[in-house]
């Protein structure tokens, strides 16, 4: 049978607003398959976002959803999770939302190791506002605000998450559509703060400025640069030049924040 995505989509919400060939829709399909595979209940699942094209995603989902302020998904989601620790909380947003204006919230959510899953759709640009460069725009690339090439080095978002203390970090791409649901499902099942970075395409504001002639070229580029972590172990530094690792990059078990906080409450009450 054809996969029934509609059972997780609010009736009457399609077609979505994303441009032709924008990978955000491919990631949304992966998220739906993951939610389905993990057996999450709509009424017990909160999907929280900030602002941007990527952050429009929760609006389509027939779950409990919150579309908040730019860069603040982690703050709102933390509030949801702490008041309702039994809920499954998933954050969704772009590289701009999560690592520029929301960078502070992002690193501290990682540090706390609160049991939530954060999906970052990294298209290397601010899509919604017309293509300004973001902290994920590679050096030399063009954006509306760097017409002569971006002088800044880019964040490696997955490494940033690991450095800040996230206990599950994975990376996929919009080309490797079949892997997206598996990475997200593993992230949901991990107890702690999980980050899944999906390398995505924005043909409208990034592709056309950076010599990609079509959506297909952008998809093939994602295919070419991705190297699964296992395969990378057998490759030399020269062979890995210009490549990005995909798959589960980091996993560790550490005390979870809501549980630690519950113990603080217990101690405080016992001291009364």
């Amino acid at each position: 049978m054809a996969y029934d995505y509609e059972k997780f989509i609010r009736p009457g919400k399609l077609p979505h607003i994303w441009c032709p060939g924008c990978g955000h829709g491919i990631v949304m399909k992966g998220l739906i398959r993951a939610i389905d595979a993990c057996g999450l209940k709509k009424e017990n699942t909160a999907i929280v976002s900030g602002i941007g094209c990527a952050s429009r995603l929760p609006g389509y989902m027939d779950c409990c959803t919150l579309h908040t302020a730019h860069g603040r998904a982690a703050a709102f989601a933390t509030g949801v999770k702490m008041s309702r620790p039994e809920m499954d909380v998933i954050l969704v947003g772009g590289d701009g939302d999560g690592t520029a204006i929301g960078g502070n919230h992002f690193i501290h959510a990682c540090r706390r190791n609160i049991n939530m899953t954060y999906i970052i759709l990294n298209n290397k640009i601010y899509g919604m506002t017309g293509g300004q460069f973001s902290p994920a725009t590679p050096t030399g690339d063009k954006a509306s605000t760097t017409p002569y090439g971006n002088p800044d080095p880019a964040f490696d978002i997955a490494k940033l998450a690991i450095g800040a203390g996230a206990t599950f970090v994975a990376r996929g791409t919009a080309f490797h559509a079949n892997q997206i649901d598996k990475l997200i499902a593993e992230a949901i099942q991990h107890k702690g703060f999980s980050v899944v970075e999906i390398l995505d395409d924005c043909p409208t504001t990034y592709g056309r400025r950076n010599k990609f002639k079509s959506v297909i070229e952008m998809m093939n580029h994602l295919k070419d640069i991705a190297v699964p972590v296992k395969a990378a172990e057998k490759m030399s530094p020269e062979q890995l030049k210009g490549k990005v690792l995909t798959g589960v990059l980091y996993k560790e078990d550490k005390p979870e924040y809501c549980e630690q906080y519950a113990k603080v409450i217990e101690r405080a009450q016992a001291a009364k």
């Binding site: 049978m1 054809a2 996969y3 995505y5 509609e6 989509i9 399609l14 077609p15 979505h16 994303w18 032709p20 060939g21 924008c22 990978g23 955000h24 829709g25 491919i26 399909k29 559509a177 079949n178």
Partner: peptide, 14 residues
């Protein structure tokens, strides 16, 4: 085709 379509626009029933 069904897996990759970003727009939920194609459904294959084998």
């Amino acid at each position: 085709c069904e897996l990759r379509c970003p727009d939920f626009a194609i459904k294959v029933t084998p």
